[in-house]
């Protein structure tokens, strides 16, 4: 011990710790950058939209008119466009995504499940702009002459199905979003279904249940909160998606009244108007749209993580 306490040695030990401290400090500083980046985004969006909040107050959120000439700005049409297009996407993607996850986790053999999962992951990797290009020139015209014209003919007397349908608008945007969020819903739900303990299934088979009965009575109920989390994560992605939606939703400035109306979402409005907008109240109002979008997506993502987090905790308890 006396040798260790020799002052010169102590000095050198301190020196040898210096790089260690520097490394921890350095990586820690960058780690703190995670918090800093989130705070920075929030603060910057808030300060750069201050003019709008001072001018209109909270009535900016409920305002229905966006008129640069009269210098009157309201966000409600774009909030509505965002919520409606994402809702359409969830209505389409949630059941299809859950059934696909069930197929991959419960029915498909490994030889089919592995390549299929791979292909679905690739779908998630396709750039948004390419999906938008396909949406505007292929899917839109296709929807117009098939699904949309059928719905207008059959249900056109109901206001929300009123035509004419252009193949570009809220419904097309919803379908494009559904395609884009399916991989999220499928891959996360599949992982959660696979994690359901086999003993739970075996007990049910022991009662003489069929495979579907095991899935619908045991596997899905156990995985329920994780599946809800996966769907909410898909919703979060749909709310923030920009390019593909911008390309297919048209350019409507009013609150959409029909499924087939042209509209704008918060993000598509920013994407199409930001470069042409005048610095001042108009740019400030566009950034205010960004702030609303950020708050919505953060809330949705936090809620989703609470659900997905719960699911993994539940699994740990089950084992």
């Amino acid at each position: 011990m006396t040798v260790l306490l020799d002052p010169r040695r102590l000095q050198s030990r301190r020196l040898s710790r210096l790089p260690d401290r520097a490394f921890v400090g350095g990586t820690g500083a960058v780690g703190a950058g995670i918090v800093a980046l989130l705070v920075l985004i929030l603060v910057l969006l808030a300060t750069n939209s201050a003019l709008t909040w001072q001018t209109f107050g909270l009535s900016f959120v409920t305002g229905t008119v966006w008129d640069p000439v009269a210098a009157v700005y309201g966000a409600l049409p774009f909030i509505a466009g965002t919520i409606f297009s994402s809702a359409i996407a969830i209505v389409i993607a949630a059941p299809i995504g859950l059934l696909t996850a069930i197929f991959l986790a419960e029915y498909a053999s490994r030889r089919i499940a592995v390549p299929l999962t791979f292909i679905i992951e690739l779908l998630a990797a396709i750039p948004s702009v390419v999906i938008g290009l396909w949406g505007v020139f292929v899917l839109g015209p296709f929807l117009k002459v098939t699904v949309e014209s059928f719905m207008v003919d059959a249900f056109g007397w109901i206001p929300i199905f009123r035509g004419p349908a252009f193949g570009i608008g809220l419904f097309a945007a919803g379908v494009i979003l559904a395609i884009m969020i399916l991989p999220t819903i499928v891959t996360i739900s599949r992982e959660i279904l696979v994690a359901v303990p086999p003993a739970q299934r075996e007990a049910m088979y022991g009662l003489g249940a069929t495979r579907w009965e095991v899935i619908s009575h045991v596997v899905v109920p156990i995985a329920r909160s994780g599946i809800i989390g996966a769907i909410i994560l898909g919703l979060g992605r749909a709310l923030g998606e920009t390019l593909a939606v911008t390309m297919v939703i048209g350019n409507g400035q009013d609150i959409p009244r029909s499924l087939f109306d042209q509209a704008q979402t918060l993000s598509s409005k920013i994407a199409t108007s930001f470069n042409e907008s005048e610095v001042g109240l108009q740019t400030s109002s566009l950034i205010a749209l960004g702030l609303i979008l950020l708050v919505i997506t953060i809330v949705i993502n936090v809620v989703a993580r609470v659900f997905v987090g719960h699911a993994t905790a539940a699994e740990a308890g089950l084992r």
């Binding site: 995670i34 918090v35 980046l37 989130l38 920075l40 985004i41 910057l44 969006l45 750069n48 994560l233 979060g236 992605r237 709310l239 923030g240 998606e241 920009t242 993000s267 920013i270 994407a271 930001f274 950034i287 960004g290 979008l293 950020l294 997506t297 953060i298 949705i300 993502n301 936090v302 989703a304 993580r305």
Partner: peptide, 19 residues
Amino acid sequence: LVDVLLGVPSILAGVLVYA
């Protein structure tokens, strides 16, 4: 927080750098 950051729409990264 990384999960939250992953959910922030990419267009806001553009707005952030613009501002």
